[in-house]
Amino acid sequence: MAEQVALSRTQVCGILREELFQGDAFHQSDTHIFIIMGASGDLAKKKIYPTIWWLFRDGLLPENTFIVGYARSRLTVADIRKQSEPFFKATPEEKLKLEDFFARNSYVAGQYDDAASYQRLNSHMNALHLGSQANRLFYLALPPTVYEAVTKNIHESCMSQIGWNRIIVEKPFGRDLQSSDRLSNHISSLFREDQIYRIDHYLGKEMVQNLMVLRFANRIFGPIWNRDNIACVILTFKEPFGTEGRGGYFDEFGIIRDVMQNHLLQMLCLVAMEKPASTNSDDVRDEKVKVLKCISEVQANNVVLGQYVGNPDGEGEATKGYLDDPTVPRGSTTATFAAVVLYVENERWDGVPFILRCGKALNERKAEVRLQFHDVAGDIFHQQCKRNELVIRVQPNEAVYTKMMTKKPGMFFNPEESELDLTYGNRYKNVKLPDAYERLILDVFCGSQMHFVRSDELREAWRIFTPLLHQIELEKPKPIPYIYGSRGPTEADELMKRVGFQYEGTYKWVNP
Rank of each mutant, 00 (worst) to 15 (best):
E156V: 10
V68I: 12
M125I: 06
I80W: 11
N105L: 11
S157V: 10
W53L: 00
R9Q: 11
K47T: 13
T236L: 02
S184Q: 06
V77H: 04
P86Q: 10
S180Q: 04
S157C: 12
L137S: 04
S117R: 04
N185M: 12
H124T: 06
I224G: 09
K238A: 10
L16F: 08
E148A: 11
E85H: 03
N218T: 01
G204M: 15
F21Y: 05
N135L: 02
K95E: 09
R81T: 02
S132P: 13
F26P: 14
T91G: 09
G245K: 10
F173R: 05
W225A: 01
R192C: 09
R57W: 00
P223K: 15
G242V: 03
R136D: 00
I196T: 05
Q209T: 12
D24F: 15
T10R: 10
W54H: 08
T243N: 12
I187D: 06
Q119R: 13
N226T: 08
N126M: 14
W54T: 13
S84K: 02
Q83D: 10
V77F: 08
L96C: 08
R198N: 03
L75S: 07
M212C: 11
A141W: 00
I167Q: 00
P62M: 02
R227L: 05
P144L: 12
I15R: 04
N105E: 00
W164C: 08
P240D: 10
L214I: 12
Q209M: 12
Q119S: 11
T243D: 12
N165A: 06
A39K: 00
D113A: 09
S8W: 04
L20R: 05
G204V: 15
E3C: 10
L96A: 07
F237W: 13
I67C: 04
K152S: 08
A6W: 08
D113G: 11
A217N: 06
M125N: 03
L55W: 00
G131E: 06
F241T: 14
Q4C: 08
R104P: 00
E239M: 11
G248M: 11
L140W: 02
W225S: 01
P240G: 04
G14R: 12
T236G: 04
Q209P: 06
I220L: 09
K171M: 06
I224T: 12
H27Q: 13
A25I: 10
L43D: 08
N229I: 02
F26S: 06
K82S: 14
A134C: 13
Y107T: 03
N185V: 06
C232Q: 13
E148I: 12
L7K: 10
A103F: 05
H201G: 12
F253R: 13
L140R: 00
C158R: 01
N126Y: 07
P92W: 10
Q28D: 08
K45E: 04
I234H: 14
K238D: 15
R17F: 09
G174E: 08
R192D: 11
G69V: 00
K97W: 02
R72T: 06
L75N: 04
E93W: 07
T51D: 04
H129L: 09
L98N: 00
E3N: 07
N135I: 02
F21Q: 06
R219T: 14
A25G: 13
T51P: 03
G69Q: 02
G163F: 01
L211R: 00
S8M: 05
G38D: 08
Q83I: 05
A141V: 04
D194M: 03
D113R: 04
P143L: 09
G242T: 09
K95N: 10
D79A: 06
F56H: 03
V146C: 07
D42V: 11
S106P: 00
D58I: 07
S117F: 07
G110C: 02
A103S: 14
I256V: 13
D100L: 08
L130G: 13
G245N: 10
H32P: 02
A149H: 09
K47R: 10
Y107V: 12
A2G: 08
I48N: 00
G222V: 06
G14M: 06
N153S: 08
I199F: 10
P92Y: 08
R215E: 01
R17Y: 05
Q209C: 08
T145C: 14
R182Q: 12
I33H: 05
I80E: 01
H27E: 10
E19H: 10
G248Y: 13
L96N: 09
D113S: 08
L121M: 06
A109G: 12
L98C: 04
M212H: 05
H201E: 03
P92L: 07
I35M: 03
N210W: 06
A71K: 00
I168F: 02
D114C: 10
I220R: 03
Q178M: 12
I168D: 00
Y49Q: 00
S29I: 05
S123N: 09
W164L: 05
N210M: 02
R120Q: 10
C232L: 03
R136T: 02
L16D: 09
R72H: 14
D181L: 11
F102S: 01
S40P: 03
I167S: 00
S106F: 12
L211H: 02
T91E: 06
T243Q: 10
F250W: 11
S40R: 03
Q209W: 11
G23L: 15
A127V: 09
S179W: 03
E19Q: 08
V12M: 10
W225T: 00
P143H: 14
I52D: 02
I255S: 09
R219E: 02
S29C: 13
D24Y: 15
K205Q: 15
E99D: 12
V146Q: 11
G23R: 12
R166I: 03
L128Y: 08
G242R: 03
F66G: 02
V150I: 10
L43Y: 13
H124V: 04
E148T: 14
L98Q: 02
S40Q: 06
L203H: 15
N153M: 07
I256H: 00
I48C: 03
K47V: 14
A127M: 07
F250M: 08
R175Q: 12
D176N: 09
D181R: 04
S29K: 15
M207F: 14
I224R: 01
A109C: 10
D79K: 03
R81W: 09
I15T: 08
G245R: 09
A103R: 08
D228N: 09
H201D: 08
H27D: 07
L183A: 12
D181A: 07
D194P: 06
D58G: 04
R166V: 01
G23C: 15
R215N: 01
I220G: 02
I230D: 02
V5M: 06
N153C: 06
E93G: 06
G242P: 10
Y118W: 09
D194V: 04
F221S: 13
L137D: 01
D194G: 05
R9W: 04
P50Q: 03
R227Y: 04
W164D: 06
F221W: 10
N165G: 04
L16Q: 06
Q83N: 02
S117Q: 06
S160N: 12
Y112I: 03
A71S: 11
I154R: 00
N105W: 07
L142P: 13
Y107M: 06
P143T: 07
A103P: 02
Y70D: 01
G242C: 07
F191R: 00
F250S: 05
A78Q: 09
V5G: 05
L235Q: 00
R198A: 04
R246L: 13
L128S: 04
Y107W: 05
F102P: 00
I168R: 01
